[in-house]
Amino acid sequence: MVYTPDIMTLKQHPVIFFALLLILSLFSFIFAMLTGSVCIPLQELSNLLSHTASPFYHSLIFDLRLPRAFAAFTAGALLSLAGVLMQVLLRNPLADPYVLGVSGGSALAALLSMLAGLGSFWLTGSAFLGALASIFLVFSFAHSQGGWTISRLLLTGIILASGWGALISFVLVIAPAERIHGMLFWLMGDLSYNRPVLPSFIILLLGLAGSLVISRQLNIMLWGDLQAGSLGVDSRKLRTIIFFLSSLLTAGAISLAGSIGFVGLVIPHLVRLLIGNDHRLLLPASALTGGSLLVIADTMARTILAPQQLPVGVLTALIGVPLFLYLLRRSH
């Protein structure tokens, strides 16, 4: 598929674009802080700053909503960055962070820890380790005969993903009924658990910094290995870096929020449309856009049927599917 961004106006004004994204990020956090089963008036925000807010609102915002919004922002930014990198690695604008089966390995490990009745810390840890195990499996299988091609990598990832899928189904079948609900939430992507955000946030900062350092090389990789090589880019080394970087970012997101779908596919698409394919702009813009939109989606997920909460993955898919189909139509 050939992907043609045709909105070039924002591309000419990156400063305005980033200013708008910062405003969007700020808006998403304010929206998340004020909205929920209990709505907080806007005025309370200024009371919070002057330390005159009621303890109830204070606790609601600082103990519940802000940490959750922060987690959503981190997960959204991680998935979007991972999506951009995976699209470069596979030189395909339809690639997403889960295409190589990282989420499957992670989900299986998370479900097994739920099955064993382990706590939130172990759940996060095992999800992360499951993702890493999956990454190394894909890498070593795809590399087995020296060098790798995109098709071998993709095929290895897809085959492993279907293997993980079968094992996940098996775990769901044998799991006791009272644990199934939590497992399904995790599989669809869920931010309602209070999980430690800091490790994932550190991964986000390091991943963003690392990918920005190689961002011009990413632009050149889009032209193919031979062109990259003739311009002095060691494409084999760079591909390995991109593979591990995007996998690590995905592992950070999954261990924080489960398998949230569509963010890693649609956000890079959307931002490519708006600002083009220069990764020096695309990477930070995708992180900000993905982060903000996941904060907004998660706030809606816990509000629409309040007090009942929806898994945020359901909402991102419900928004993502029509948006993606629309972008696909526009792309020709």
């Binding site: 992907y3 070039m8 889009l222 031979l226 062109q227 003739s230 083009g276 394919n277």
Partner: peptide, 16 residues
């Protein structure tokens, strides 16, 4: 010191 103009290029992610 050296540059190569290839016979074919990939244009999956167009730019200006």
């Amino acid at each position: 010191k050296m540059g190569l103009m290839l016979q074919e290029y990939e244009y999956n992610f167009p730019c200006s």
